[in-house]
């Protein structure tokens, strides 16, 4: 199948130039190359600009409520481990209101793939500071400079126990597609922090701003350099930072219960 086969007839509501377009194309192409049956593809989103992605990819998708995609996706995956379940949401959705669930997912290592559409602002509500916006920055719609420190999604993911942690840039569609393909093959809680500009509200972290700073990791960082790489801010490394194999939550639950998965299967 081709990425085009997963297109829906919904009109896309994102602003022209939005990073979400890059993510949408990369995700669609990755899914097509892995040849996932649309019925078994489950994209679960919260609320925000990026969460609209469920309407633009043909699947068996769920649009939940603000911050709560991870719990609903967890229930789906535990009920039916045969499904490919992807969580999509913004940094506000996943790391602000939903941060507790983001941490809990890492602790559980449920086989869910989390895509953070990270633009450091709340777009739908018109440009308030998101959890990843650096301190003291005043974006165009903000009344005062940001009085919060920025959250580092990679460090949070690492501390929480995610077994696959990566960073990507929304406009580098082909590398992003390859990274998503890799994440789809991973078994366990995986996260890609996808940096994206918000053309309307984030007048600091523009496409140009990112392109001056980003570079690709040559290889998986070793233990001694891992945290250093995750913490870098002046230059922004992209790629896979951390990747390990571990027993997943549903495997554990099922071995505790002494039985095989009893989800709904045989589609």
């Amino acid at each position: 199948m081709k990425g085009f086969d997963y297109k829906t007839d919904a009109w896309i509501q994102w602003c022209p130039g939005c990073g979400n377009y890059g993510i949408l194309t990369a995700l669609r192409n990755a899914i097509a190359e892995v040849e996932i049956d649309p019925k078994k593809l489950v994209i679960v989103s919260g609320i925000g600009c990026s969460s609209r992605i469920v309407y633009y990819i043909r699947g068996s998708n769920v649009h939940t409520i603000h911050g709560r995609a991870i719990p609903v996706a967890s229930g789906i995956k535990l009920a039916n481990p045969d499904l490919m379940v992807i969580v999509a949401g913004g940094d506000g959705d996943l790391l602000g209101i939903g941060a507790g669930h983001f941490v809990a997912l890492g602790r559980r290592n449920i086989d869910l793939k989390v895509l953070i559409h990270d633009n450091a602002v709340y777009g739908l509500t018109k440009g308030q500071a998101g959890p990843t916006l650096p301190s003291a920055v005043k974006l165009r719609a903000m009344n005062y400079p940001n009085s919060h420190e920025a959250l580092n999604p990679l460090l949070l993911a690492f501390a929480s126990g995610y077994t696959f942690i990566a960073r990507a840039f929304a406009y580098h569609v082909k590398p992003l597609k390859d990274l998503i393909k890799e994440v789809l093959m991973h078994r366990g809680s995986a996260v890609i922090d996808i940096l994206q500009p918000c053309v309307t509200y984030n007048d600091l972290m523009t496409r140009d701003w990112f392109e001056k700073r980003i570079y690709y990791l040559d290889s998986l960082p070793n233990e001694s350099e891992l945290l250093q790489k995750m913490k870098e801010v002046d230059r922004i490394p992209l790629g896979v930072f951390y990747k390990i194999e571990k027993e997943t939550f549903d495997q554990k639950i099922n071995s505790i219960m002494g039985r095989k998965n009893k989800g709904v299967r045989n589609v």
Binding site: V62, A73, I76, N80
Partner: peptide
């Protein structure tokens, strides 16, 4: 949320 996800599945 999890229970709703399981119910959906």
């Amino acid at each position: 949320g999890m229970a709703l996800g399981a119910s959906l599945a």
